[in-house]
Design a protein around this nucleic acid. Structure first.
Lengths: 201, 201, 201, 201
DNA sequence: CACTAACCGAGACGGTACGTCCCGTCTTCGT
DNA sequence: ACGAAGACGGGACGTACCGTCTCGGTTAGTG
């Protein structure tokens, strides 16, 4: 029977200030050195106001990143579909490479990933709120390619996404190699070779 | 000009006690709640003895895992080579799946990965000391398959390893799906399809 | 521009617990072995609560002794005045001798003195808060004696107090000789001889 | 049956270096912040060499001050005796005032006093080695004055020294007033008044 | 239109851990 | 064998944050 705060009373001004402060501080000092006290101070907010609405530091950071992505999530979120799956995937993969190289994205995403690894709850939220919609858009494009006979009709699309993106993600996460547009292209080529439909005689 | 301790005077007894304590505590309380003080107390050691030889909590944990792997690293570290690359890879991949499922391995590896993500220095050490030897063994097996004409002779083997392992690693790291022997097999199948040498007429 | 804590929010309960713990611990282990950590633990208080309100160990001990004296300071604080300055001073000096011999007083006062010697700031506080009122009372009695023609009318009373008390204080502080009632009497006799008014014809 | 070090093997060079380092450091950082490690480092000596020959920090500092006084202690150590006790004492007292005002003397003496207060063993050593000879010289001068009928023949000379010096010492120790040549003179005047022999008719 | 309940900023509180300093002991090596 | 060097187990330091807990002071919505 614990006391739940009343969301209708919540100060939107404070919420925005907290998320903005969290975003800034993650970029400035990194996730590990980020503290609730610093967020509260930067946001001009009492600590209690943070503890009232978020259960953990990770949750705040997660929301702060989520808040960035939401506006674009409302809009279409569809991948290009020119009919040429290879060209379309290369465009998308090269864009992903560019995103990972952008320092403004890198710090928060790395922070978020760190937290997700050790918090299954956040991981679930991540898949639902952030990865989910994006993955759906990607799978929609692959389904279109299946219909066009460009990739195997019976392919497991979740697995397909892993095959395509996991090498890129791992190389970035562990810094185990350079992320270049050529690398993106090569991954697409290998992916298509693996997913190619069986030959008809 | 800074003062470095003299490694020849180092107490091997203390070193072992610290690494053992770190290993135990990571399993017991998890990496995030692991503290230097707890390691020192468990090891019966002064905190300064830890700070003297390791720059960070991450470095201690890294060494504690490294110490586990070293004995086996001395021995052969060769993968099975029956001539059947598909069968051999499936054995290895299934073993990897099993390893990731073992809670005794999972906790420290997850801890290590967390640390590696945010510490490029540790990441480099990881690649050199832990991943390196293993990857070399795997690439040796793939080279053997190249000689046997089972995979493309001009394939980039680092990339090949990423294609084969990254999906598995990512699924485990982000808990984005079940790790089963069948999954391991499927990855091998897709991998071989992608790496297959071009047909000669 | 530095951040001061707000005294109105101060916890009186904690303040009392800290002063009591400090008093007890000085008696138990002595001033040199007294630690802030032990005071905090005994008082059931966070260390920060001590550091927030006191600048040093010495200041805490000082306050803990001050707190003891304050209640009596409110009351009269007047010395006996029977008209016989010799008898009155001997009573007071013998009382001082007895006080110095009481182990319950000795430890904290010795601690306090140690700290005062090396901290001019504390020394000033000591004179204002502790020694000051007592000295005033003593000087009041001497002034009465001046009016009665028992000691020189033009005598410097601060100097007079030094002449009377310093030998006693020094013998106690340096343990350079026994503190007996007879010693007290002798000091009064010498003091009166030195302060006697000049003879009239 | 603990192992005693053999004094014949003792390195005089190290002993001197340690005492010099202690003297310097007391002046530089004060007694409270003085550490054995700093003394050892400054002296270019192992810590064990200090622990082998001295039981405590206080003992080292005591010896370091003692070493300064010893050369002069060997020589005469007699006070001036012009036959005029008042003039002679004023010279000596004014010299003491000047000594206390000298910062080079002040720091170590204050440190020494601090230690003596809390260590009865050191106090005894102090009286024997340092204060003793000086006091003897002073008492010799007073005895001469007794013979000359300038002070009471039956006066307790230890008490006399306290009466004369304690006010000065206390004022310096507690910083309770200015130390001036006039103050020294006044003390001598009062002292002589108190010690004056009884009138003969 | 007062009343009152909630959120809010602020920040003191009991704690835990930090990374550092120094203690006094012990060990190694060089002279 | 002593001395320099310094690693060791240990204890305390003073600081940074944790998450909880009052404090007034707004700020709604209700009676």
């Amino acid at each position: 029977m614990s006391k739940q705060p009343d969301p209708t009373r919540r100060s939107e001004r404070s919420r925005q200030a907290i998320l903005a402060a969290a975003r800034e501080l993650v970029s400035e000092v990194g996730y590990a050195k980020l503290t609730i006290e610093a967020i509260a101070a930067r946001a001009g907010v009492g600590k209690q106001t943070i503890y009232r609405w978020w259960p953990s530091k990770g949750a705040v950071v997660f929301d702060s990143i989520l808040a960035l992505s939401e506006p674009s999530a409302d809009s279409g979120m569809a991948l290009p579909d020119t009919g040429d799956i290879e060209a379309d995937l290369k465009v998308v993969m090269r864009a992903t490479v560019a995103e990972f190289a952008d320092p403004a994205f890198e710090a928060p995403i790395r922070a978020l990933t760190t937290e997700i690894i050790n918090d299954p709850g956040l991981a679930a939220q991540y898949r639902e709120k952030l990865a989910g919609p994006v993955d759906e858009a990607k799978k929609a494009r692959l389904r279109s390619a299946q219909r066009a006979g460009q990739i195997a009709a019976d392919a497991d699309l979740d697995l397909a996404l892993e095959l395509l993106y996991a090498p890129l993600f791992q190389r970035w996460l562990l810094r185990s190699g350079p992320l270049t547009p050529e690398y993106a292209d090569t991954l697409v080529d290998l992916f298509l070779k693996a997913m190619r439909p069986p030959l008809r005689h």
